[in-house]
Design a protein around this nucleic acid. Structure first.
Length: 574
RNA sequence: GCGCUCAUAGCUCAACGGAUAGAGCACUUGACUACGGAUCAAGAGGUUGCAGGUUCGAAUCCUGCUGAGCGCACCA
């Protein structure tokens, strides 16, 4: 079953085209003045002339709408206002009732989509700077997979390059088993800092570190083994953080920089053959597009450094080529902070110039802003260092636990711990995903953990409350009923909100603006509580009771599904 | 210097070029013999940073300016 926007759109489109004699987007959307409105008559005047109200009238006369609408009116300068009949609402809702996908079908043309996200650095702590990429990337994975796409997760961890000379030497100094221990318990900062301190203070150590880098890059077996220890322990640690966070990243998703090592020379050669490579100040570079540096000179991506080594430029190019050529991705998503925008655009441009990236394939930078403290500056600890991600998550869970203990003392310890986790982590994720990802946002535990307003706890509570209706009544939802009775304004409002889910999902899958999904869910929850105040469910009888129970069921399932797509758990009680 | 992102109610945030710019928090006022009040209803709160332009119509698009954050060669 198509959704309402599509249904109305199809009917109006053909009518518009009959009137205009040209292709027309009927511009159907939700309206404050009716259920839906079509705005297409007004812009059409620019193309074909005439009076917009008259055009609208002709369209309305031609369009078959009487089986869907109880009212079709032309209003203002030429808006077409559409009111859906209660029967249709009831019928459409009944159709979604017995569908696990709530009436939203899988995409007709599934793509292979790579998503590059999270990307922490081995032997370094995960901090708030990794939070947004990890959360947004995970939501993208969930949504696009649910739509039926083949999604390939790419955790491009930083585990190669000059710092590893110093880290390997430090590992040797303190002993392998001690190092593995430190890393496995998550003291990555301590380990890195100790190495760094020695590197800065001790010339002998610095010299060892430099030599170790050479050994590493030349493939020395012992060095590689030590390096691998560092990387493996870091990965184990990252997986515990992902587990706490509840994101779908696992061992198989690590494709770090070293994964591309044996492709770098080939990238260089290929760019050279294509004539894209130029020598510049001793380095081999590509100069995509017309980017300039601060001196007004063309800005390069350095493919091979002056010392013969490969840097991130080469790796990033190898990565995009691999995703296109070997993984056959047609949509490449990079969930990376805004500061890297220019670099990524240069990588895409290079890939286009090399002929690797060509339609229908496209690469998109899913950029995001920063997380700020209450002072409006980048979130940091009092000491001025970046906040450990695990500490931030722990704090959220502890605070959630306190709130829940206060609000519902009857929950047993085990349930409370589980709910606190869902609420605490959910609050952190939701506060991130519910704001426009391009903007910075202020991190505030009190606000995100509030049960009022546009927060995860409010949505989780709204759903838990619905679960309790069925629990209290001792019944299971009946998903076989033929149609729903929609009569009260509050029922109608809820029905329309529920039926808007499919359209919303396809929009968000396109623009990956998850705050739209968040706001939809909040609107749904608000509409539901309003309905719940006005329309008694269990006290109603017969078809009305049955219909209202079905509305409750659909709301609970839509909330749960929407939250799940955002990566947020919805406990049955809290 | 070049470029990117942002600027909306006191605060935190919404608004495919569409009708009277919407929510939440805080504030004011109502509603509890309660299907979980962890709620709901209502009120007040705005020159959408400034100035032009395009358009039947601009918070949205274009130009300039102001302000904030960030990026611009061998780190990623």
């Amino acid at each position: 079953m198509a959704n309402l926007e599509e249904l109305l759109g199809q009917r109006l489109k053909s009518a518009f085209e009959a009137v205009a004699g040209t292709s027309v987007d009927p511009l159907v959307r939700r309206s404050q003045h009716a259920h839906f409105q079509s705005d297409a008559a007004l812009p059409l005047v620019r193309k074909i002339g005439g009076n917009p109200r008259e055009i609208a009238a002709q369209v309305v006369a031609k369009a078959k709408l009487d089986d869907l609408c109880s009212s079709v009116e032309i209003s203002g300068p030429g808006f077409i206002n559409l009111t859906i009949s209660d029967d249709v609402l009831g019928q459409l809702l009944a159709d979604t009732l017995d569908d696990d996908r709530l009436g939203v079908s899988q995409v007709e043309a599934p793509e292979t989509i790579t998503i590059d996200y999270s990307a922490p650095n081995a032997a370094k702590e995960m901090h708030v700077g990794h939070l947004r990429s990890t959360i947004i990337g995970d939501a993208a994975v969930r949504l696009l997979e649910w739509q039926g796409h083949t999604v390939i997760r790419q955790n491009h961890i930083g585990e190669w390059g000059t710092p590893f000379g110093m880290l390997v030497e430090h590992l040797l100094d303190i002993g392998e088993s001690e190092a593995a221990h430190e890393l496995s318990v998550g003291d990555l900062n301590g380990f890195y800092r100790a190495a760094r301190t020695k590197f800065d203070a001790d010339e002998t150590f610095k010299d060892r570190a430099r030599k170790r880098v050479v050994l590493l890059q030349s493939g020395d077996e012992t060095t590689l083994r030590l390096w691998r220890t560092l990387v493996d322990e870091s990965k184990k640690y990252f997986l515990t953080v992902y587990s706490t966070l509840g994101v779908r990243l696992n061992e198989d998703d690590f494709f770090g920089e070293s994964y591309y090592n044996d492709q770098l020379q080939s990238v260089l050669d290929e760019l050279d053959e294509l004539g894209l490579l130029r020598d510049s100040e001793g380095a081999k570079c590509v100069f995509p597009g017309d980017y300039l540096n601060r001196n007004g000179d063309p800005l390069p991506i350095i493919v091979q450094k002056g010392d013969g080594g490969f840097g991130y430029g080469a790796t990033d190019l190898a990565t995009i080529r691999h995703r296109l050529r070997n993984l056959h991705a047609t949509r490449l998503l990079y969930v990376v902070g805004l500061p890297q925008h220019q670099h990524l655009e240069m990588v895409y441009e290079t890939a286009r110039e090399a002929g690797w990236l060509a339609p229908p394939a496209r690469a998109e930078h899913i950029g995001h802003g920063s997380i700020l403290g209450s002072d409006g500056k980048m979130l940091r600890t009092r000491a001025g260092i970046s906040v450990k991600l695990v500490d931030l998550l722990e704090e959220a869970i502890i605070r959630a636990s306190a709130v829940i203990a206060e609000k519902n003392p009857e929950l047993d310890e085990e349930t409370r711990a589980a709910v606190a986790r869902a609420v605490g982590i959910g609050a952190v994720k939701y506060s991130d995903l519910s704001t426009d990802r391009l903007k910075d946002y202020v991190f505030d535990y009190d606000r995100m953990l509030s049960f009022e307003g546009n927060t995860a706890p409010y949505l989780q509570y709204a759903r838990a409350r619905i679960c309790s209706i069925f629990r209290r009544a001792g019944i299971a939802p009946d998903r076989t009923i033929d149609t729903l009775v929609i009569a009260e304004p509050a029922e109608r409002a809820l029905a329309l909100e529920l039926l808007g889910f499919g359209t919303l999902i396809s929009e968000v899958a396109e623009n990956l603006e998850f705050h739209r999904l968040a706001h939809y869910l909040y609107g749904l929850a608000s509409t539901f509580t309003s309905f719940y105040e006005k329309c008694h469910v269990l006290r109603a009888e017969g078809d009305i009771r049955q219909s209202r129970l079905a509305l409750c069921d659909l709301t609970a399932r839509t909330l749960a599904l929407g939250l799940e797509l955002l990566g947020i758990d919805a406990p049955n009680q809290m």
